[in-house]
């Protein structure tokens, strides 16, 4: 039954998720800068607050006071709209991820997820598929050749990698026999983590998701060395901050989805006795996953655009397809 308490519960959980993502975004930037610095034998930002923990506040403050420039020949409405519609998909994609087992808070049984729809995986695909609009529109509306090229690259890249990404989801889905994230986590509790059962799907997910969020070494749309800053070349101030925020929230999102699909989500030892451990396990997995993403960025140069497309269409897509077919056949035979 839908009652007022349930609506309040939804609102509170949504708020917690959004606050987690925005605060997480701030600290992922610090995490990335510090970790990159250690890899590069530097120290990294450590002046603002203890261990540089106030650095994101300083960065945010700086960006707020920056002048907001809109190029003279830009399409002003879409130019303003683009950063907003880039952030929204990033913020809502995690709504279907379970954080832990249901537990009792203030005498009330609370599920630790916002929604357990039976089409969670399709929901994730739908949201990721529309996240490209912001980038394309930003590139187009800036009226700048570099930005336009960046937007075009982003579009082509995302379409190419979405297929492989969607097919990589299908491995865990076929094994768990459900499109619900909660069911996928439960299925992993009873068997092995899917990174063991589905290594090919995990690798395809890992690379396709990096390409999907335009991180190094697939950061073609913003390729600093070629396109200066690509689609957000003309953005400044808070509008730029929104793009920046979207990029890091997407990082958190793919880490969380990856951890849920392939690393058992909130699963871990003793989680059935102490439900509080669920969110902690998930957070730890996400942090490690993020660390790998940063490590990848520190280690590899960017691959060239045409080779990226070749990799997407000629290697990743057929491999993902093959993986789905093999998994399906095996599941049918074993059952």
């Amino acid at each position: 039954m839908i009652d007022a308490a349930l609506i309040w519960e939804w609102i509170i959980k949504s708020l917690i998720l959004i606050i987690f993502l925005t605060v997480g975004f701030m600290y992922v930037t610090v995490y990335e800068r510090r970790f990159l610095a250690r890899i590069q034998s530097r120290i990294g930002p450590n002046r603002a607050g203890p261990f540089g923990l106030l650095q994101p506040a300083a960065d945010g403050l700086k960006l707020i006071f920056k002048e907001e420039l809109i190029p003279a020949n830009a399409d002003k409405f879409i130019f303003l709209l683009a950063p907003i519609i880039t952030v929204i998909p990033a913020l809502i994609v995690l709504a279907v991820i379970p954080w832990g087992e249901a537990m009792v808070i203030f005498g009330r049984q609370v599920n630790l997820f916002i929604s357990d729809v039976n089409v969670a995986v399709v929901y994730i695909m739908a949201v990721t598929s529309i996240s490209v609009y912001g980038i394309t529109l930003a590139g187009w509306s800036s009226n700048n050749k570099y930005a336009l090229l960046g937007g075009l690259r982003a579009t082509a890249q995302m379409i190419s990698y979405e297929l492989a990404l969607g097919l990589a989801f299908m491995g865990p889905v076929v094994l768990a026999g459900s499109l619900s994230m909660v069911d996928i986590v439960r299925a992993q509790q009873s068997s092995l983590w899917y990174v063991v059962l589905q290594p090919a799907a995990f690798l395809i997910y890992f690379f396709a998701s990096i390409a999907e969020i335009n991180r190094a070494p697939f950061d073609m749309p913003e390729a600093e060395q070629e396109l200066t800053a690509g689609y957000h070349a003309e953005y400044s101030g808070m509008k730029f901050a929104l793009f920046f925020m979207a990029e890091y929230i997407k990082m958190i999102a793919i880490s969380t989805i990856g951890a849920t699909l392939f690393f058992g989500g909130f699963d871990g030892p003793f989680v059935d006795q102490i439900p509080w451990l669920g969110p902690i396990y998930l957070l730890a997995k996400v942090v490690i996953y993020l660390g790998v993403l940063i490590w990848v960025r520190a280690s590899w140069p960017r691959i060239r655009y045409d080779r990226l497309m070749q990799l997407g269409w000629k290697i990743m897509f057929p491999l993902a397809l093959l993986n789905v077919i093999i998994t399906a056949v095996v599941v049918v035979l074993v059952n």
Binding site: L36, I39, Q40, S41, R42, A216, P217, D219, A223, E224, Q225, R297, A298, S299, W300, P301, R302, I303
Partner: peptide, 17 residues
């Protein structure tokens, strides 16, 4: 050169060291 290829400063900083 590695930076120009898109590596994020790691080779450059190793070299600068």
């Amino acid at each position: 050169l590695l930076n120009d290829l898109g590596a994020f400063f790691t080779p450059a900083l190793y070299a600068l060291k």
